[in-house]
């Protein structure tokens, strides 16, 4: 897994993840977004387009970001993974009911303030 963070317009933090996102990499993800939260960021886009595999530890880390962001008055928009199996697991675990989901980073950034 690689984690890349870029700041888009209006202080939206875009966290781009790829490859395998599992219990081994979940702590790295948590550390990355915790630093952003501690610095005052509350609006996030989670770009999962290139994520190929996710386990429950990784998904729990994503939910933790959502909870912390919302508690601070912000939000998280998720860009859906292209991998059909990864997307299917997100649906199976009802992530589509708690996250706003988008198809592209650009549309997700727009939806942050919609």
């Amino acid at each position: 897994m690689n984690v890349q963070v870029t700041e888009r317009v209006l202080r939206v933090q875009v966290i781009t993840l790829n490859g395998r996102l599992d219990a081994f990499y979940a702590p790295q993800l948590r550390k990355t977004y915790q630093a952003l939260l501690d610095a005052g960021a509350i609006y996030f886009v989670l770009d999962l387009r290139d994520v190929e595999f996710m386990d429950s530890a990784a998904m729990a880390a994503l939910v933790s970001l959502l909870k912390q962001s919302r508690a601070a008055g912000g939000t998280v928009i998720m860009v859906k993974p292209v991998n059909e199996n990864a997307l299917r697991i997100l649906m199976l675990t009802k992530f589509d009911r708690v996250f706003h989901m988008s198809d592209t980073v650009d549309s997700a950034v727009r939806e942050v303030f919609a």
């Binding site: 386990d55 998904m59 939910v63 909870k67 697991i89 199976l92 675990t93 708690v98």
Partner: peptide
């Protein structure tokens, strides 16, 4: 109700 809050691994 909120996925990720426990039990998800066994559920999967």
């Amino acid at each position: 109700d909120l996925p990720g809050e426990g039990g998800m691994g066994l559920f999967l």
